[in-house]
Nucleic acid binder design. Structure first.
Length: 470
RNA sequence: GACCCCUUCGUCUAGUGGCCUAGGACACCGGCCUUUCACGCCGGCAACACGGGUUCGAGUCCCGUAGGGGUCACCA
């Protein structure tokens, strides 16, 4: 597909003003998928040009989030803040060639400009008042910003891999600031210079950047550089249909981790948001790698649906192997329990896992449902369990305990005894099994009760029965 | 407001002019299985925003309308 061209290089370029939110995670995923599927490189660049709004904690959260998601990047992380000299150098070149100019307009002036433009219903933006003005007229003591002298005629066209051909009239675009009055580079300048210097061939990002792409294209042209291939992917929206952002309901990926979602499930789900491969719903990352193309990315924004993620996560949990699930669920269990699990308890957890994982959609649910195995007697009954253990039921449990004491302690042996007991009492199995479950697990739902009894062990199980018997 | 983008079941989507009386998945509602809850299986509900064209034929192409979204900083 790309055989006669240079190798693909993509990048994910978050600004460290907060955690890695779900939209960013998907952008990273798509960049990663595209680069990896093309045999190219996927780089990471932290856009910390605005030092005031950036934080080390945010940088760490982003790195951690990407690692947790399994989106490993090539090479060293590039910090944009470390490249300011290079950015300024390019502006110098632009200035020399007459493609940029100094602008002495004050913030107040600019504000006025915007307000009157809005009032008159005109395009908002800088009016170019210093574009051709003699620098000799520069006011005293004002540090100028440097603006790009962008074309006023014609149009700028982008051939976007997702959005198609998009064009805008050049007079819609004002002269953007490249270097602030204090000499620091703006985002527009930095991205272009960095993407160029890093050899980025494909810029895949949220389509909230689509309009930026026009300005950036003009900058590329002024610099005499070949613009990268653009692919603006639609945003992820919240349930209300509005852009999901840090200040609008978006959660950091660590929140998904804490809610007990598996990285593989989240990757799979994110793939299905805006991209698809026919009717395929559940597929591995390896398969996504085989199938992924930018062409198949849709143009319409998608809403985030927790129910579907949850369903997918349940599938991944069921398909996970027991040992891995023990590792993954352990932190959740220990946190709820308030203590670490002993070695033999971990073994028990592993043994119980097939029954547990069948009915959990998240690691949190999995942990919750496993707790009864490790709680200490006497168990605190939840409401439903308490309702099950009526006076009659407790009396029955007392008798059942005695017959159970002589049972062969495995699933078959236990089931045989309980069924015989129910027959003898002329009770339906459920009438016996439910109180039994309540007594042993302190809940009304659990894995198969005979399996639970076996895993719990004779002594512990009988003691728990004794606890609720009259 | 200006510019740009979008529009198939509640949600994610398949669909690239005839295979569509529109398919799948999640959710929802029934049923089966069953010691509970899940799982699994079976069945059901449910959509081409609207209006004009083009065409023998339109969910698919064109135009318009409506609705939604994004962007308009010396933020990124």
């Amino acid at each position: 597909m790309n055989s006669d061209k240079q190798p693909v290089v993509t990048r994910f370029a978050p600004s460290p003003t907060g955690f890695l939110h779900i939209g960013g995670a998907r952008t990273a995923l798509f960049n990663w998928l595209y680069a990896r599927s093309q045999g190219g490189k996927y780089l990471l660049r932290i856009e910390d040009t605005d030092r005031k709004r950036s934080s080390d904690a945010a940088i760490q959260a982003i790195l951690d989030g990407l690692k947790w998601l399994g989106l490993d990047w090539d090479g060293e992380v590039v910090f944009q803040s470390g490249r300011q000299a290079r950015h300024a150098e390019m502006v110098e070149k632009l200035l020399e060639e007459g493609n940029a100019y100094r602008c002495y307009a004050t913030p107040e002036e600019l504000k006025e400009m915007r307000e009157s433009a809005r009032a008159q219903g005109r395009r908002q933006g800088y009016d170019g008042r210093w574009r051709d003005r003699d620098p000799a007229e520069a006011p005293e003591g004002v540090a100028p910003a440097i603006r790009l002298r962008s074309p006023n005629d014609g149009e700028t066209v982008i051939t976007d891999q997702v959005q198609g051909t998009v064009r805008v009239a050049n007079d819609e675009l004002d002269d953007m600031i490249l270097l602030r009055g204090d000499g620091t580079p703006t985002y527009m300048l930095s991205v272009v210079v960095d993407d160029h210097d890093m050899g980025i061939t494909h810029v895949i990002r949220g389509d909230d950047h689509l309009t930026n792409a026009f300005r950036q294209t003009q900058l590329y042209q002024a610099l005499g550089w070949q613009p990268p291939v653009f692919a603006h992917i639609p945003l992820i929206h919240g349930p209300d249909g509005a852009k999901l952002s840090k200040r609008h309901g978006a959660l950091g990926v660590e929140a998904y981790r804490d809610m007990g979602y598996l990285p593989a499930a989240l990757r799979n789900y994110l793939c299905r948001l805006g991209w698809g491969h026919g009717d395929d719903e559940v597929f591995s990352t390896a398969q996504a790698l085989e199938w992924f193309t930018l062409e198949a990315v849709g143009k319409a924004p998608a809403r985030f649906d927790f129910k579907k993620l949850e369903n997918l996560n349940g599938i991944y949990i069921r398909e996970s192997d027991d040992a891995a699930l023990v590792e993954n669920a352990l932190p959740f269990i220990e946190e709820k329990l308030g203590r670490a699990l002993e070695t033999d308890e971990r073994t028990r957890l592993n043994t119980a896992m097939p029954g547990l994982k069948e009915r959990a959609k998240t690691l949190v649910e999995l942990a919750e449902s496993a707790l009864f195995y490790f709680r200490e007697r006497p168990l605190e009954l939840n409401e439903k369990a308490a309702n099950l253990l009526t006076g009659d039921a407790r009396a029955m449990i007392g008798q059942l305990r005695d017959v159970l004491a002589d049972a062969t302690w495995d699933v078959d042996g236990l089931e045989a005894v309980v069924r015989a007991f129910a027959d003898e009492k002329e009770m339906k199995l459920g009438k016996v099994a439910q109180p039994l479950r309540a007594a042993v697990t302190a809940r009304a739902t659990s894995p198969g009760i005979f399996e639970v009894l076996e895993i719990l062990g004779r002594d512990e199980a009988l003691a728990r029965l004794q606890d609720v018997a009259p």
